[in-house]
């Protein structure tokens, strides 16, 4: 009976524990927003300090307004979203490069496969893992992103990869995402 009563109480407060990272903007006094933002900035600051790339983490999060209302899961999702943008740019670059140089034919096939895995497997896995509270599999997705993008880069000979910049950005974001996700285990 005791546990039943307890269950009821906890169930009543469950909705307040919701982890939606995209909360509606606060419509209260400026002072309140300032307070909240300062507190949240602390979360961004502390989170990024615990990643291997503070600058990248901090600048990526600051450039997305959702960061100010997000918890750590939400911050992870914002980094994954940023990674998704870069990966999409990489796919566009791959499509543009097709036919540009005979030496690129095979590497670009490899890169298409790599980015297909990143966009269709790794990123959905990371997003679902973060949304559903299963960081383990989100970590798997980001760990594999690093592997895939390295495979793409290495498929070009003699450091002549036309995708180095994008690959490196995707790689670096995957490392930041992975380290934020590990904070959630």
């Amino acid at each position: 009976m005791k546990s039943f009563a307890f269950s009821c109480i906890v169930l009543a407060i469950l909705p307040s524990l919701s982890t939606s990272y995209a909360l509606p903007p606060l419509k209260k006094s400026n002072h309140h927003i300032f307070m909240v933002r300062e507190k949240v900035n602390d979360l961004i600051e502390n989170t990024c300090r615990n990643t291997p790339d503070y600058q990248l983490c901090f600048s990526t999060l600051l450039s997305d307004p959702r960061s100010f209302d997000a918890d750590t899961y939400g911050l992870g999702l914002i980094i994954v979203d940023a990674l998704k943008d870069k990966a999409t740019s990489a796919v566009n670059a791959i499509n543009r490069l097709k036919g540009s140089n005979p030496e690129f034919i095979r590497p670009l096939i490899k890169c298409s496969i790599s980015y297909n895995a990143i966009l269709k497997a790794d990123i959905p896995e990371a997003i679902e893992g973060l949304r559903k509270g299963v960081p383990k599999f989100a970590e798997y997705g980001m760990a594999d992103t690093a592997v895939e993008v390295q495979g793409c880069e290495n498929s070009f000979k003699q450091s002549n990869s036309p995708l180095t910049d994008l690959n490196k950005q995707v790689y670096d974001l995957s490392i930041v995402a992975k380290s934020i996700i590990r904070m959630l285990l």
Binding site: K120, D122, Y140, G141, A143, D144, N154, S155, K157, R182
Partner: peptide, 18 residues
């Protein structure tokens, strides 16, 4: 088109041609 696996927490760091 969905796949997955796990390098687990211990990441492979590949070198050389894939």
């Amino acid at each position: 088109g969905v796949s997955a696996k796990s390098n687990g927490p211990f990441l492979f760091a590949g070198e050389g041609t894939p």
